[in-house]
Amino acid sequence: MELIKDKKDIENSLMNLLEKYSIQVNGSIQLFGRSKPGVLNLQPGYEFLESHEENNPVPLLTWRMRRKFIELEKILANNVVEEPCLFRISCSASIDKWSLSSILYRELDLCEFIGNGKIVSLQATINESEVANLIVKLDNSILCSIEVSTQLPHNSVLQDRHEVIGRRGVASDLVVDTQVGQSSVYTFTEQGEITYTDTDMELFGFDNDQIDHIRAAFQVLKEPGLIDEWQQQHEHLVYLLNAVFESGKKRQRINLKTESTYTHETN
């Protein structure tokens, strides 16, 4: 049996990576908890949605470290799939790990990251804090659907799909003719079916969200220029989230004129 990796393990692993790759860090960093004065606070961006931090937190777009999203982004950037027209996103999660806002924050960012564009309009239909369906358009004219739900049972593995349809080709993180993600290892024993998906040997034993957190923190410490970029994207995502809930409330499409302001337009 394996011990569950905790916060201390995550911090130690980041330190080990920094040492291995000779990355010098000036000052203190933290990966969890409320921001402390003078300490670089490296946490997934959605952790900073509710707080009004005075200490300049560094919102991490951790999912951008996940290799399936990196490859999808490359497939579009390298014109393997040409002239993308439609982007279909779906993500179901459990409320013990995700809120509607946090999951929307993640998927809105992935929409722009993989789609290589900025959202210029959105229309949202929202049921309480459980479900949101969005129709979104990027500034490169890709039309996108984003379906999110927080109604998976507690402790469930997040189920997501990201599929881009172009005039030449389709790219997806789900294999054709399937509805759920594959795992790399399945065991069928008296304990039932247990699955494992291990993708990172340097961080073996951590779950994928922990790996993304460590990798994203490592990346901003390695490339400090990324801090500004991600802080700006965080501000942008906060505006988008506000627009999503406003659209849902008013039952209106919202056109966003720039990255940080938006105007309303009745359907």
Binding site: V81, A171, S184, V185
Partner: peptide, 18 residues
């Protein structure tokens, strides 16, 4: 006690483009 099935190079992403 049971059976294990593994794919040492999966899952991945998939496309039918260039």
């Amino acid at each position: 006690k049971g059976v294990l099935l593994a794919d040492c190079f999966g899952p991945n992403v998939y496309h039918n483009g260039a």
